[in-house]
Write a protein that binds this DNA or RNA. Structure first.
Lengths: 326, 326
DNA sequence: CTGTTAGCGCCTTCAG
DNA sequence: CTGAAGGCGCTAACAG
């Protein structure tokens, strides 16, 4: 009996059965070699006594923690909430817990979270858009890590096929007849924002290219750039992500610019929240699936990170441009 | 040096300084009694060697984990994402980590999560709307716990002043001239849903009382009940929460019922997401603050749980009823 | 104020 | 297949 918590230990079930603690230990661990009979008896006694393995003790002894650390910049963004759920579900299935750290959109907090958790996890899944490559790698100290929706030299990473997503978005708008497709770029410091911008630039050559921003990865970011967008004379716009796109739509509507009649808007991410009001056309990026893949790369040696497919989902915020009423 | 992880241990910094391990331990723990001079030397050496305390070892030795468990039914709901953030920020400030478990809206998963984490945390903050009181208490095995947005006999709990919130909502609608105020109730199995329904019933007496549902705690739940609402002839409705309210608005709009002209809608929770499109009038319930209070009750003995204030936030989904056009 | 000693609960050689 | 012994890294008496 654990003196402090009053919980049963391995010795209690050993005593109960008249066997040694090592036998109980072996019976309770996958690679332990015990007779089937004793294994069953041990399992029964453990259940009866309410035994739960003390993971701190196991950790100390084995050097493994059976836990993964997950960093996300902001849990309020459903994009990351879904990643958290996906990672947890997958890791649980593989016998691992996931410790989530919300880093509050701060590079500093990303580094701190890594340093705090480093000893207590077997590996990291990092949604870490802000911290610099070198600081990340330094803080990691060699702990196995998969980067999600970012690339860091020397680390495996799981990213979405943004070029293909952007191609789908641009093709859709061009097919509708939009000559000038603007882009609202996300925060300059964010890897993902840079990658999405590059994808746009690859798809839309000068002189048709119209880049606005960078704006904050928030509703307000979209709001702030709407008027500038109107001034460009574009009839269609692709936004860094759905949240930004919603801000854009909000301000456009307030200005009397009807979406999609006077402005087609495409978001990025494919969040459910973007369908609540005026259902937004968006390039969907797999959230849970990306997280699951990242966890697999960490936990199943041999799993090779592959690009996540992106998919344009056409809803109601895109249409053919209307002839200007004069 | 830790053989496995290659990280410095307390012995390394002890050796480096020519002192004993216990001295280092004392220098590094709050209640340890060491001379200021050696404390400084130890801190310097620890920093220089990149020492990080191994929390498993400390845990094993002290019986405390410096971690809290937080259960939430669904991280995708911003209500809980904000609770998670609030709890983490507060706990971090008090030297504790927070392990979040998303229980996927399942009573079973709530119990399992508690049993999984019980040994690894010093206490729980439970947003656990589904599991039964007895099973919860049984699974907890005496681990210090605060229940958030629910009441469980024998456990301290932090809840919002729903009656006052409901009073504000109903008063607002009555002042606007609505004679019949309907209510869309949340899932029958959820404590919070029952509490909100009671608050409505306390505020609206028969025969004016119109209760719809129960519906799922989702956008679709609101969608599903909109037509029934119209059939009641009510001109105003209060929904179980914001997400449900948004579903309601969506379907009403699709039916050509303009909000707020033909139907006033009030949500509950006060989420930002409910302002993205047609800004929703809502009864705001403190999220982060409730989580912080719960953490304090756990970590600061003597903190007494107080009811969280609720506040009606009037936005654009409520107005005076329009005379029926015939 | 500091060093020595003895575990915390578990896993893992090593014998038998 | 099973028991005994040692140690993971740290803290907590107990001496000095």
């Amino acid at each position: 009996m654990n003196a402090r918590s009053g919980r049963a230990t391995i010795h209690d079930v050993a005593a109960d059965l008249g066997v040694s603690a090592s036998t109980v230990s072996r019976a309770l661990t996958p690679q332990g070699t015990v007779s089937d009979a004793t294994r069953r008896r041990v399992e029964e006694a453990a259940a009866r006594l309410g035994y739960r393995t003390n993971s701190a003790a196991r950790n100390l002894s084995t050097g493994r923690t059976n836990a993964l650390g997950l960093l996300v910049p902001d849990l309020r963004n459903p994009f990351f909430a879904e990643i958290a759920k996906g990672a947890q579900n997958r890791a649980r299935g593989r016998g691992h817990a996931v410790y989530i750290a919300d880093t509050n959109l701060s590079a500093e907090a990303e580094i701190e979270a890594i340093e705090m958790m480093r000893r207590d996890v077997d590996g990291f899944v990092l949604c870490s858009p802000w911290a610099e490559d070198e600081r990340l790698v330094a803080a990691l100290q060699g702990v196995p890590t998969v980067v999600l929706h970012r690339e860091v030299p020397g680390l495996p990473s799981v990213t979405a096929d943004l070029h293909d997503g952007m191609r789908q978005a641009v093709s859709h708008l061009r097919a509708l007849g939009h000559p000038r497709i603007a882009y609202v770029s996300g925060p300059a410091g964010s890897w993902n924002a840079r990658a999405r911008l590059s994808a746009y630039e690859a798809e839309v050559a000068e002189p048709a290219r119209v880049v606005l921003g960078p704006v904050a990865d928030q509703f307000e970011g979209g709001v702030s750039v709407a008027d500038a967008l109107l001034a460009t004379g574009s009839t269609a716009v692709i936004a860094y992500n759905d949240i930004t796109a919603l801000g854009l739509v909000s301000r456009l509507t307030a200005r009397g610019v009807v979406v999609p009649d006077r402005m087609s808007v495409i978001g990025f991410d494919g969040l459910d929240v973007a369908t609540l009001a005026n259902p937004l056309t968006s390039v969907s990026v797999p959230r849970a699936r990306g997280a699951e893949l990242a966890v697999d790369v960490l936990l199943r040696p041999g799993t090779v990170p592959t690009a996540l497919p992106t998919q344009l989902v056409v809803r109601e915020s895109t249409a053919a441009p209307q002839p200007t009423v004069t």
